[in-house]
């Protein structure tokens, strides 16, 4: 049996909804912990108090730069992890913490919150508020294959993760405006509608087939852009959807692992 990878969850200024999403893989979560990953750090689930060495660090929340501990935590996380994943929209894009403006007791100086990509290099984004359990699961399985799999598995995992790595390079801001700027204004929108489905606050409707965003509702989570087939569409991987789904389902089948 191949080695398990060391998985950690680093909580910064987030709401723990991202972590609940991790746990919302239910039996699949137990299976991941049984066979693929040791949870070496996670304040909410384990008693480890200091950040250890990790293969994959799932970072939830943005960083308050007026809070010394948070800044140290994210630097420490980068130093000690092979792969840093921004888990959820706060870590990726700032999300609601983009609206923060300080001035509130008991720490009125806590004013500036930055997505982790503004402070460290981030390898993979899992956008979403909260991120879907299924996407977290897919990334966990693919990260395992990338680090511990055979050559074919490594190649597949690399191809699968590429767009999520590209998202991490693209931007640290997310908004409905991304659809306007990078999809509609670029002549790419096809009115498929999935942006509206993905929006966690129902800020998007379709008027005569094209998205209308209510900017007074948008929480800047960046999900709509990520879900849009015209943001990224890696046909080489997506056309393999049936086989990849089988691989993931196989990896998470209940019972002892056979390899």
């Amino acid at each position: 049996m191949a080695n398990k990878i060391k998985l950690g969850h680093v909580h910064l200024s987030g709401c723990t909804g991202c972590l609940v999403s991790v746990a919302d893989n239910y039996q699949g979560f137990l299976k991941i912990l049984d066979d693929y990953a040791d949870l070496v750090y996670c304040l909410t689930l384990a008693d480890v108090r200091r950040i250890p060495e990790m293969d994959v660090a799932l970072v939830e929340g943005s960083v308050c730069i007026q809070n010394h501990e948070s800044v140290e935590d994210i630097k420490e996380t980068r130093k000690k992890s092979r792969i840093v994943v921004a888990l959820g929209s706060c870590a990726s894009y700032g999300n609601i913490t983009r609206f923060c403006r300080g001035g509130q007791h008991n720490q009125p100086q806590h004013e500036s919150y930055l997505p982790i990509g503004d402070l460290i290099d981030v390898d993979v984004y899992i956008p979403g508020c909260p991120p879907s359990p299924e996407l977290i699961r897919n990334v966990a399985v693919m990260a395992y294959l990338l680090l511990e799999g055979n050559e074919d598995q490594k190649a597949l995992a690399g191809r699968y993760l590429k767009p999520l790595m590209d998202l991490a390079k693209r931007s640290t801001t997310g908004c409905f405006c991304d659809l306007m700027n990078d999809v509609i204004n670029q002549g790419l929108c096809i009115g498929c509608g999935i942006c509206a489905a993905s929006c966690p606050v129902r800020a998007i409707t379709h008027e005569f087939g094209k998205p209308q965003g209510d900017l007074n509702l948008c929480i800047k989570c960046g999900s709509c852009y990520g879900a849009c087939p015209r943001s990224f569409f890696n046909s080489d991987v997506i056309s393999e959807f049936e086989a990849i789904n089988e691989i993931i389902a196989g990896a998470l089948k209940e019972g002892e692992r056979d390899d």
Partner: peptide, 27 residues
Amino acid sequence: PVRGIEKLAIGKTMDQVPKIASRVCGI
């Protein structure tokens, strides 16, 4: 860290603020 939800709510719409308030806690 204090994200300051009560302060950032001021001036926002009554429809948006509860959506932001939800994100105070994911449990």
